[in-house]
Amino acid sequence: MFDRTGQKRKAVGRPRVGDYLLSIAYFGLASGAMMVWMAAIGWGAWRLIEWMMS
Rank of each mutant, 00 (worst) to 15 (best):
F2K: 06
A33I: 13
V36F: 03
G6R: 09
M34Q: 02
I24A: 15
D3E: 12
R9C: 11
E50S: 10
D3I: 11
G13V: 09
I24R: 08
R16Q: 14
A40Q: 05
G28E: 03
G28Y: 07
R14H: 14
Q7W: 04
L29M: 07
R4V: 07
A25M: 03
S23D: 14
G42F: 04
S31P: 00
G6N: 10
D19G: 13
V12Y: 06
L21K: 12
M52E: 06
I41R: 05
S31M: 07
M34N: 00
A11N: 12
G42Y: 01
G28Q: 07
G32L: 08
G6A: 15
A45E: 08
W51P: 00
A45H: 01
V36R: 02
Y20E: 13
L21G: 02
S23Y: 07
W43E: 02
V12P: 05
R9P: 09
D19R: 05
D3G: 05
L29W: 05
L48G: 01
R14G: 06
A45G: 01
M38T: 05
G6P: 00
S54Q: 10
L29C: 10
V36C: 09
A11D: 11
I24V: 14
L22N: 12
R4Q: 09
W37H: 01
Q7M: 10
R16S: 14
A11V: 10
G32M: 10
A39S: 09
S31F: 07
I49R: 11
W37Q: 04
R16Y: 09
G28D: 08
M38A: 06
T5E: 14
A33K: 02
Y26E: 14
S54R: 13
G6D: 09
L29Q: 06
A45S: 03
R14V: 14
K8G: 07
G28S: 08
I49S: 03
A30P: 01
P15K: 15
L21I: 15
S23V: 15
M38I: 03
L29N: 04
A11I: 10
A39L: 07
A39Y: 04
M1W: 10
R4T: 12
M1D: 13
D19A: 11
A45T: 12
R16E: 15
L48T: 05
R47W: 05
I24C: 07
K8V: 05
V12S: 05
G6T: 07
M52A: 14
P15W: 12
A39T: 03
K8L: 04
D3N: 13
M34A: 15
S54A: 08
W43R: 01
A30V: 14
P15V: 12
S31L: 06
A45N: 00
S23F: 12
S54G: 04
R9F: 11
R4K: 11
A30R: 13
I49F: 08
G18F: 06
P15I: 11
R47L: 06
E50P: 00
F2L: 08
V12D: 12
M53V: 07
G44W: 01
M34Y: 04
M1A: 14
L22Y: 10
I49P: 00
P15Q: 13
T5D: 12
V17F: 15
S23K: 06
Y26Q: 10
R9D: 12
R9E: 13
